[in-house]
């Protein structure tokens, strides 16, 4: 059930970025990056957040680790509202929730050895006093690296090793909740498998809770229990992952699933190509966000936001077609 053991919950999250223009640099409009993100994640669970580029996934992740203030909506952590926490509460939360970005270069200081990067975050959070080095060593083992890697600079590691080092550093502050933003997008397939299995193994052992942000549906199928599909800043379908792959109800989800190239020439897919591209989110969504690309679009879709329909245990869709059924 929805209420058991929920660690993170967001309700109607919104984020509008102002666009400045003119010689006075006044606000001339907004980028409606996130219009409505709503989901929950149980302790020890992986929720996949899927959507094409620009759909607002990273923005949601940044809001969740408080790098960004939401324009609207609420965030709950362990049932308490943390939307507006400040001071020591915020500091405590920042330790529990860590984000790992796609590009491991961006998250490690290129002029610091892995050891110094890891020890630095421990010091910031005043953890493992006097035991920093020993704990850094334990972390290396945890992520499948060895002591020698502690003395290397980021550019002296391979892509997969670097991403492991980033994971080690995130784990150094003993978090509970990890936001993984395209964690394997910069890796080759042979190395991607190593990192995915590491993430799975760590979760089994230490019960971490993951929000996995990705546009890779194969990765989602491999490691997330439940999935949310976003389009233009708005969630359009959410479901247990298995069910989503077997009976997606939203036309956008269906199009996504049919567009993924399958590495098996014997699988003959029925093609379901959708035309067009997602628009720039510089106007607020009116009606269904997918209306201008949807092959089933009806008049009502363009003007009225489709209501949320529950079509199975934890499977919800926002589409007028489903509503009419």
């Amino acid at each position: 059930m929805e209420h058991d053991d929920i660690l993170v919950k967001v309700e109607n999250l919104k984020k509008y970025f102002p666009i400045y223009g003119g010689i006075l640099q006044r606000v001339v409009g907004y980028i409606y990056a996130v219009e409505d993100a709503s989901f929950y994640i149980r302790k020890g669970e992986t929720l996949g957040l899927v959507g094409e580029s620009g759909s607002g996934k990273t923005t949601v992740g940044r809001i969740l680790v408080k790098l960004e203030e939401p324009t609207g909506g609420k965030i709950f952590y362990n049932s308490s509202d943390i939307t507006n926490i400040k001071g020591s509460e915020l500091k405590k939360y920042r330790r529990k929730a860590q984000i790992i970005f796609q590009d491991p270069y961006a998250s490690l200081n290129p002029r610091m050895t892995i050891k110094d990067s890891i020890i630095e975050v421990m010091k910031v959070h005043r953890l493992h006093k006097g035991e920093e080095y020993n704990n850094a060593l334990k972390l290396m083992e945890k992520v499948g690296l060895s002591e020698e890697h502690l003395y290397r600079f980021p550019h002296e590691l391979s892509g997969g090793q670097r991403q492991r080092a980033v994971i080690a550093r995130a784990l150094a502050v003993e978090p509970e909740f990890l936001i993984l933003d395209e964690p394997t997008a910069s890796l080759d397939v042979s190395v991607q498998a190593q990192v995915l299995d590491l993430l799975k193994e760590l979760q089994e052992k230490y019960n971490y809770t993951y929000l996995l942000i990705t546009h890779n549906l194969a990765v989602v199928r491999y490691i997330s229990e439940r999935t949310v599909i976003m389009y233009r800043g708005m969630w359009v379908e959410t479901s247990p992952t298995k069910e989503l792959f077997n009976k997606a109800e939203h036309p956008y989800t269906q199009a996504l699933l049919k567009s993924v190239p399958i590495p098996d020439p014997e699988v003959k897919k029925d093609k379901f190509l959708i035309s067009g591209e997602p628009p720039n989110p510089t106007t607020p969504v009116k009606g269904c966000p997918f209306a201008d690309r949807c092959p089933y679009v009806m008049d009502i879709c363009k003007n009225e936001m489709p209501p949320v329909e529950s079509i199975g245990d934890e499977h919800k869709v926002r589409c007028w077609l489903v509503n009419k059924k």
Partner: peptide, 16 residues
């Protein structure tokens, strides 16, 4: 390479 690929159409066990 083939065994390392997660797939969107079927459940597989990947091997790096």
């Amino acid at each position: 390479l083939m065994e390392a690929l997660p797939r969107a159409d079927i459940d597989v066990k990947v091997k790096s």
